[in-house]
Design a protein around this nucleic acid. Structure first.
Length: 328
DNA sequence: CCCAGACCCTGTAGGC
DNA sequence: TGCCTACAGGGTCTGG
């Protein structure tokens, strides 16, 4: 179940693809294009022939900016020079806009529950490959990028790049622009997040999972961070003291950072990096998936309850639901 | 606007 | 052995 650390590992694996050219695209299952606005032919046409640039990420979404064939064939604008239009045959025309060479759109990837991006030598198939991108890479040669997704909650799409809100020169796909920054992002706004918490009467876990408030956290890391901060998943967000909310945010950062350092969580073959290797964070989990086992802090059994159509794992002793505002 | 819950999707595990 | 059901949950959408 890829969350921020897992997606970041995939992003790092894809960053080496910068400069690779898309030779061809095959869509085996159109359901994997659910987020693409337009038919699959449009997806294939816009991707084929373009060059991939280095991968970016916002929360659990990642994207590879695309340089189109047309842009590549255009000569660079002369520095400081006036717009030169063709005056006779054979003289190249230059674009008038100053950022004519920047990527206009990107290949957006979301792994959903079971998505994998696997880089293989050309000709190496993977079971349940929904989309294949055939690449010519200047360093690695002929590659297949196999988008594998058992449950098809993930997707690929081509989307327009827009300027990011807070940071000049940063671009983000339109379909991702509503996703909040993740808590490890240097531009994450702590004060704004804490203020949002104070204004929400809903359960704290629901807020942690709300990608519009802060991104990158899924069910696993929500449970782990709440356990570390000793907060019950159903505690109303607004009932947390500011100190308690700050502690929770710090624990979120700790658990995400630790998982990132260990290469992401893995329980089975559901999550793998671009080489198909698993992470090792599963050994570090304190409550997730450990119902019935001893709480690592107090020794009492960990409990699993249904919440938001998901399992919530917690220690009923360490994480008690409090009806009055938390003092500390 | 805020909030809660339904829905999508399929390989695997477990019961009988 | 084989059939059946329950289960996993990220993100979007709808309805109150």
């Amino acid at each position: 179940m890829p969350e921020l650390p897992e997606v970041e590992v995939v992003r790092l694996g894809l960053s080496g693809l910068a400069g690779a050219r898309v030779a061809s695209v095959t869509v085996f299952d159109e359901r994997s294009l659910r987020r693409h606005l337009g038919p699959s032919e449009d997806f294939v046409d816009r991707l084929t022939g373009s060059t991939l640039l280095h991968a970016s990420r916002r929360g659990k979404f990642l994207w590879l900016p695309l340089l189109s064939e047309i842009q590549e064939n255009q000569p660079a604008e002369p520095a400081g020079g006036p717009d030169l239009l063709a005056t006779d045959a054979g003289t190249p025309a230059f674009r008038t806009d100053t950022d004519g060479g920047r990527p206009r759109e990107a290949l957006v990837v979301h792994l959903g529950m079971s998505g994998q991006v696997l880089l293989r030598e050309r000709g190496t198939d993977d079971a349940r490959t929904r989309i294949r991108i055939d690449l010519d890479d200047p360093v690695h040669g002929a590659l297949w990028l196999n988008f594998v997704d058992q449950r098809i909650f993930g997707s690929m799409a081509i989307d327009e790049l827009l300027p990011a809100r807070e940071v000049a020169g940063e671009w983000i796909p339109r379909s991702v622009s509503h996703i909040a920054r993740d808590p490890l992002d240097p531009h994450f706004d702590d004060r704004r997040f804490l203020a949002a918490l104070a204004g929400k009467n809903t359960a704290i876990k629901r807020v942690l999972l709300d990608q519009n408030q802060l991104s990158g956290i899924g069910n696993i890391y929500a449970d782990e961070a709440l356990w570390a901060a000793r907060i019950h998943y159903n505690q109303p967000a607004a009932s947390l003291s500011r100190a308690r909310a700050k502690l929770l945010l710090a624990e979120v950062r700790l658990v995400l950072g630790k998982a990132l350092a260990e290469g992401g969580t893995s329980f089975d073959t559901q999550y793998v990096d671009v080489n198909g290797d698993s992470g090792y964070f599963a050994h570090s989990l304190n409550v997730y998936g450990r119902q019935g086992e001893a709480c690592p802090r107090c020794g009492r059994p960990v409990v699993r309850e249904q919440f938001m159509n998901r399992g919530s794992h917690f220690c009923p002793f360490c994480q008690r639901l409090r009806t009055r505002a938390l003092a500390r």
